[in-house]
Write a protein that binds this DNA or RNA. Structure first.
Length: 306
DNA sequence: CCTTTCACCTGTATGC
DNA sequence: TGCATACAGGTGAAAG
């Protein structure tokens, strides 16, 4: 659910409230949040206390807080993760932690930073030497907002794959930050069916769908990025983070905003895909009879990005 | 090496 | 009422 725009808003909120602050206490309420890393709750706590937080950074859906400019506290929100800032001078008296608070950090200005995660798909990890780019995410490609992002290279990468375009958009080692919602939105905008084989896509179309993904996420960020100025680092678990103006996602049976045709929902990898059956058509050859020419050429072996 | 499937999680909604 | 099931879906390990 939190995809790139939502994570970026969280990052900006953290920059405002924890950047430049020192961690004075750390409490692990549920060690399952640390599952991705090797540290016990005790070692995790010890690794955080007395550390100075730098400006939080982000790649795709991951964000991290540099610690003393060397190590990093790496976070992934998973499906339901949130960060929330409270002023414990107000809230601590007799208040019990949030029901789904998993880790709570005390900062040197009296604020508390809580990692709240109902479904426990999120994670927190200490990454030694990870201030620049934490080792566990070295395989995550740059996202469309990253200065290192090269759209044309990604399009070439996509076309060199033997898969379908929606799967490739969700592949975080090709381009990061896109999840199920923005993948569907990008495909609708580019008028491409998610099951379109990548190797049959023209360079122009591959670039178009990537450009659409970047545009959709930039617009979502613009729409949502202005709304936090309370003590909440705004991420709300399920009720739609921002007023996302979605064109297809979740709109089964409603009219396509371009052509009026009913939006269709299909099952895809144990989740849902939404698309317009008129605007987004598959190429007609399905392998019977006079099929499309087989694409055999491989321009280059898949290049690693990032 | 590349692609696909599945376990990991919990709260809410729905069917019998 | 109670129980079972579906659904939300990002990630990485494992399988193909």
């Amino acid at each position: 659910m939190p995809e790139l725009p939502e994570v970026e808003v969280v990052r900006a909120g953290l920059a405002r409230f924890v950047g430049g602050r020192r961690i004075v206490t750390a409490r692990v309420l549920d060690p399952r949040t640390l599952r991705r890393g090797p540290l016990s709750a005790e070692a995790f706590t010890e690794a955080l206390v007395d550390r100075l937080c730098g400006t939080p950074r982000r790649r795709g859906k991951y964000l991290w807080i540099p610690l003393d400019g060397t190590d990093a506290l790496l976070a992934h929100l998973g499906m339901s993760g949130q960060f929330r800032i409270d002023d414990h001078r107000i809230t601590d008296r007799g208040a019990q932690p949030h029901r789904h608070a998993r880790v709570v950090l005390g900062l040197d200005d009296g604020h508390q930073l809580a990692f709240i995660d109902q479904r426990l798909f999120g994670s927190l990890t200490i990454c030694p030497g990870g201030a620049e780019l934490p080792q566990p995410i070295s395989h995550i490609a740059p996202d469309p907002f990253d200065p290192d992002y090269r759209l044309n290279d990604v399009a070439a990468h996509m076309r060199a794959r033997h898969t379908t375009v929606k799967r490739s958009l969700l592949d975080q080692s090709m381009v990061s930050g896109i999840g199920n919602i923005y993948a569907d939105e990008a495909l609708w905008r580019a008028r491409i069916h998610g099951d379109h084989p990548t190797e049959l896509m023209s360079t122009r179309r591959a670039r178009a769908v990537l450009r659409s993904a970047g545009e959709v996420m930039a617009e979502a960020l613009h729409a949502g990025g202005t709304s936090f100025d309370s003590l909440y680092v705004h991420v709300n678990g399920d009720s739609g983070y921002f007023s996302r103006a979605l064109s297809v996602y979740g709109r089964e049976g409603e009219p396509c905003r371009r052509c009026g045709r009913s939006i269709v929902r299909e099952s895809f990898m144990n989740r849902s895909s939404y698309f317009c059956p008129r605007c987004q058509r598959l190429p007609r050859t399905s392998g019977h009879g006079a099929a499309a020419p087989r694409v055999v050429t491989r321009t280059h072996s898949a290049r690693k990005i990032g």
